[in-house]
Amino acid sequence: MRYEAPNTLDQAVALLAAELGEARVLAGGTDLLVQMRTDVIDPVLLVDIKGIAETRQIREEAGGFRIGAAVTGAELKEYPRLGSVWPGVVEAANLIGSTQIQGRATMGGNLCNGSPAADSVPALIAAGARASIVGPQGRRDVAVEDVMLAPRKLSLAKGEIVASFLLPAKPPRTGDAYLRFIPRTEMDIAVVGCGICLTLDARGACTAARVSLGAVAERPLLVAEAARVLTGNEALPVLLQKLDAAARAACRPIDDKRGTKDYRIKVAGVLARRAAQIAYQRARES
């Protein structure tokens, strides 16, 4: 196995594109090294992207934030303005693993690991984040919900790298939240995750919403119906019950060692309600 640590995206792309064997991008490594250790993968080339400036920076851009794909969870937390604008995204990223994992794990890696249970992904989707992808054909911007296709399958071509994310400017009276369910209080993979972002009008009614569910399908879902019910005219308790039902209806989970189908479906509804309440509160306060 070769290890390369280029300083530019062009070099990284060239290395990945030229390798005929299995090549992997190394960001935080908290999933990659485990898969290497347990012989799930056996790459011949690792391209460490942490030496590339764009992947390691948080910048304010177009009223929003450009976040490098290799920025760690701990660094996100230490950038206070980001947490005050997009608290749901930062909370989601900070739920990944332990304090030690937070010191290394990145949102780029969380997305490109290709797990339907990735915590930061539903939060990024709910926030309307876009991934900036650089490859042999140049740069393209893709909505985060369009990056992952199925477990371990991404819509990236050979040689393409997720370099950064753009979190958009947040509209007024908008709040986001992410909740996940795990059997313990820490250290587990999400059994269900739910990210919600919603915008209120001056009277407090929801005018726009994005609802994303994790670990209930082959990839994180953007659930349009759940968003639609939130913009209805009913009283909040009714809206929340409809949201619960819409979230449940969107689930197509599997039974596995982390939860049953039935359980995931029920809890998806519960988390959607609870996350929406937090998002409402944040939208009112913003």
Partner: peptide, 19 residues
């Protein structure tokens, strides 16, 4: 295997020696 790297707490098993 907790250690600090440039002041940041990490698991030494999840970082390569070359890094």
């Amino acid at each position: 295997c907790s250690v600090t790297v440039d002041g940041r707490l990490v698991c030494a098993c999840l970082m390569l020696g070359v890094e």
